[in-house]
Design a protein around this nucleic acid. Structure first.
Length: 840
RNA sequence: GCGGCAGUGGCGGAAUUGGCAGACGCACCAGACUUAGGAUCUGGCGGGUAAAACCGUGGGGGUUCAAGUCCCUUCUGCCGCACCA
């Protein structure tokens, strides 16, 4: 370790003299805070509440720098709010179900529960060594029966409401994790966790009906001014609302119909063909026994073996085959050919489209490839489009043409009129479609909350009665190398009695997606030991919603949308009083080293434990907050850490040197007739209070808050050079320095606070206010510009008017020089800032 | 392709409402103290010049007395979405 290498005992002794002993003071104060129950809170109606929450971690075994950043940010907020008189709830827990525990079990033979408990113990100790102000009495772990009992309880509530249902569906299957994935967990066609290419598999699975809430999830984003626009935009895109019209077309020569969804009913006269998704149920019926069947079957088979990515990428060339069937366009009675094509998806809309090549780029490309006519039915102003000449589709607005009775209408009017026309004939209606799909929550894994369902041959699917919860996960299970969930082999688990008829029945062996567990943990924290209900409503009503939520932007869609969904459902059930769980959201950036994300595979990780051992928790926290504003990525720098360590030592020496002198000094309420040097120190003290308060409260810009504290320290070092010093002014500066620094570096400030004569903990103090009078300056420096370039600076009375500034500026020697022989055309004055003289 | 964010010294970053570009820190240089320094303190530190002038916030154009900040255009990087009818 640089800085700690010393070669002789004398050197070591001298060395240690100038460095504070964090190894002694950090554990000392951590123990003191814990013994004195500093951070344990209860509901208190006399104070405003503040719920400060950081996303709880998966207990992988070790804290990484991203965690340290997350929790350091949260702790500054918690301590700052506490000092400002809020009753602050700041809890921590463990998102403890999940696949890594099973992988560890297979690899090392350790049961997932044992492995997880050990990891939690280790990480908890690491968190404690950071000195974060958590109320540990509220600790929870989602893998414990007293928690997942209520995850199951909530599942049953959803089931009762028809919001949990089972259906057979083509689902995303990760062959490596041997489980299904939610749509949200498929990234670029691969598994979010391991990257393996996802396959489609048809399985009976449990879903949560999040689509019922699509509109509210979208609308209520408006109610979240405290969220970053970026996250709201991502959620909006994910929900993917589009307004349009669904209508049916008859199939020529049959009694069958095809339903389609379109956002452009105004182009319906431009339909020159139809497309069904290859999986569309009508395809077989239309082609069976026809000369077209072999080609169609061949095409469908080929599509089946293409993975999702290749199939749905916009890069993929459009292709398709004609089915031999025709549909009747209801608006003009035309017969149009029905094709199947790769670019139409069964999952969206009705799985079938009307194709208008003149006004849809995808249809255009397909039509050109297969020689299908392109008919213009929308003409933009000042242009005359010709379907045969077009080089791309015209997707903009215009006037309807070739559209019978609708000719001349604008696209906007046309949409309304065509929908009305279809509604009048009962063949269609205006509808809204969402890209959002229902949330698939089944996982074919062991280490998760069992889905509380029983299958009885007589009674069918039966929910486990509430009084039988929790459905306990057996802890002694055998992992076989089949990749299959070991729950399937545990007879005592699978075999049960039907709650309805009492006959032998089987338990569901799938467990729930861990995102279910993390969708309600912030509620459980409000009454974590409630034994007969998931939470105490009074406690939840007192604390919720979370005032400040802090975590990585990687959860922008999944966790944050699921939690919003849960909150809305629970609100509708009357179990919660708020409709949105997180009032303010801060998405922190990543911690990088050498420009890329820290990861074991890259070998560029920095261990928080090592940093804490070498420099102490205060230094680690300070650096990570100082190096970059929280929402931006942070480049790790060992030298930067060193710099923060140096700064804390500088504070330590400064306060230490003054400690004996100021210990018994009283700071008066007002100061009168101070000399300039003392006034300037007071100005710095109070302007720093103001700056740090605003940076922390309004902007979360901890980096600039810390830099202004550094400036105060620099000013104090300079003041210390003065022969005559006012110890009351010094004490005022030191007290405030320690108070301002305390949320960032809680241990060293506690030690120094006591050293300067205070009996009570620094963390029980009020956040300092600033003295407006100390910020008033009689004289200030202004800048004098000629033609926008700085030519001189001048000290002027702080309250000088524009006119006065002008005459002062024009009387300055350098300005006279710079303007001599030129005509003054204009003088701009900004009181308190500058004068700009425009000359020709 | 669409949407969003960003681009400022050798580096991390600051400039909050259009008003002194580069706060603070790192690195570097010099001095002091010193048996010693990888400790500490003091000073310097965008380019340029003897000193000035002058140039400088990815590039080009514009608005303005004044632009890192506003407008147009363009390049680069990152993130999200991506055949969603």
């Amino acid at each position: 370790m640089r800085g700690f290498y010393v070669s002789s005992p004398e050197q070591r002794r001298k060395y240690m003299q100038v460095r504070y002993n964090f190894k002694e003071i950090e554990p000392k104060w951590q123990q003191y805070w814990e013994e004195n129950r500093f951070y344990i809170v209860t509901e208190d109606e006399s104070k405003p509440k503040y719920y400060d929450l950081e996303m709880f971690p998966y207990p992988s075994g070790n804290l990484h720098m991203g965690h340290v950043r997350n929790y350091a940010i949260g702790d500054v907020v918690a301590r700052f709010k506490t000092m400002n008189g809020f009753n602050v709830l700041h809890p921590m827990g463990w998102d403890a179900f999940g696949l890594p525990a099973e992988n560890a079990a297979i690899k090392h033979g350790t049961p997932p529960s044992v492995w997880t408990d050990a990891n939690i113990a280790n990480m908890k100790q690491q968190l404690k060594s950071l000195g974060i102000s958590y109320d540990w009495t509220r600790e929870l772990a989602t893998c414990k029966p007293d928690y997942y009992k209520f995850t199951q309880w909530l599942f049953l509530k959803f089931y009762e409401r028809g919001l949990a249902y089972k259906k057979k569906a083509a689902v995303n299957w990760c062959p490596s994790c041997a489980t299904v994935l939610a749509n949200e967990q498929v990234v670029d066609g691969g598994c979010e966790r391991c990257g393996t290419l996802v396959e489609k598999k048809s399985l009976e699975q449990w879903f949560f009906k999040i689509t019922d809430y699509a509109e509210r999830l979208l609308q209520d984003l408006e109610r979240l001014p405290g969220w970053p626009d970026k996250v709201k935009t991502m959620q909006r895109n994910w929900i993917g609302r589009s307004e349009g019209c669904e209508f049916t077309l008859a199939i020529a020569g049959t009694d069958d119909t095809i339903s389609v969804f379109t956002t452009r009913p105004d182009t319906v006269f431009g339909v020159t063909y139809m497309v069904l998704a290859p999986e569309h149920p009508l395809v077989e019926k239309l082609t069976r026994g026809t000369p077209y069947q072999p080609a169609v079957d061949e095409f469908i088979n080929r599509m089946k073996y293409l993975n999702e990515l290749a199939r749905t990428s916009s890069e993929t060339e459009k292709e398709g085959v004609f089915t031999g069937a025709y549909a009747i366009n209801p608006v003009n009675g035309e017969k149009v050919p029905i094709w199947i094509a790769n670019y139409v998806l069964m999952e969206y809309g009705t799985g079938a489209i009307m194709a208008v090549p003149a006004h849809d780029q995808r249809d255009f490309e397909f039509a050109r490839k297969y020689g299908i006519p392109v008919r213009v039915v929308i003409q933009p102003d000042g242009e005359l489009l010709d379907g045969d000449q077009l080089s791309s589709a015209y997707e903009g607005d215009g006037r309807m043409v070739n559209s019978g009775e609708f000719n001349g209408l604008s696209s906007e009017e046309g949409k309304q009129k065509v929908i009305a026309w279809m509604e009048a004939r009962k063949i269609g209606r205006g509808t809204v479609n969402y890209r959002l799909r229902d949330w698939l929550i089944s996982r074919q894994r062991y280490w998760g909350a069992p889905i509380p369902i029983i299958y009885c041959d007589e009674c069918g699917t039966q929910p486990v009665p509430y009084e039988d919860l929790p459905v306990l996960l057996p802890l002694d299970v055998e992992f076989r190398p089949t990749g299959e969930s070991p729950l399937n082999y545990v007879d005592q688990f699978v075999r049960t009695a039907c709650p309805n008829c009492g006959r032998p029945a089987r338990r569901e062996t799938d467990t729930m997606d861990t995102f279910v567990c993390s969708s309600w943990y912030y509620i459980r924290y409000t009454s974590p030991r409630a034994a007969d209900k998931p939470w105490d409503k009074k406690a939840a009503d007192y604390w919720l919603p979370v005032d400040q939520y802090i975590g990585g932007v990687e959860h922008a869609i999944l966790h944050l949308m699921y939690s919003r969904f849960f909150t809305k459902v629970l609100y509708d059930m009357g179990l919660l009083s708020c409709e949105e769980p997180f009032t303010n959201l801060l998405t922190q950036g990543m911690v990088l080293k050498e420009g890329s994300k820290m990861s074991k595979s890259r070998g560029n990780t920095v261990s928080p434990e090592d940093i804490i051992n070498t420099y102490g928790a205060d230094t680690a926290r300070l650096f990570i907050l100082f190096a970059s504003p929280p929402e931006r990525d942070l480049e790790w720098s060992d030298q930067g850490v060193e710099g923060c360590y140096r700064f804390l030592n500088r504070v330590w020496r400064l306060v230490g040197d003054y400690a004996d002198q100021v210990r018994n000094v009283e700071v008066p309420a007002t100061f009168d007739n101070l000399p300039v040097a003392d006034k300037e120190l007071r100005y710095k003290t109070h302007s720093t209070i103001k700056k740090v308060s605003e940076d922390v409260e309004k902007r979360f810009n901890f980096n600039t808050a810390i830099s202004s504290i550094m400036e105060l320290v620099n000013t104090l070092y300079q003041y210390r050079e003065n022969a005559v010093q006012n110890l009351a002014v010094v004490k005022e500066a030191l007290d405030n320095l320690i108070l301002l620094l305390s949320p960032f570096a809680p241990h060293i400030t506690e030690e120094l606070w006591r050293a300067t004569g205070h009996q009570e903990s620094v963390h029980l103090q009020r956040w300092p206010g600033y003295d407006e009078k100390a910020l008033v300056k009689e004289e200030i420096e202004i800048v004098v510009q000629v033609n926008g370039k700085v030519r001189e600076r001048a000290m002027v009375p702080a309250n000088a008017t524009g006119k006065e500034l002008e005459s002062i500026a024009l009387s300055l020697d350098r300005i006279k020089e710079a303007t001599s022989g030129k005509t003054v055309r204009k003088v701009i004055t900004v009181p308190g800032k500058l004068v700009n003289i425009v000359v020709q």
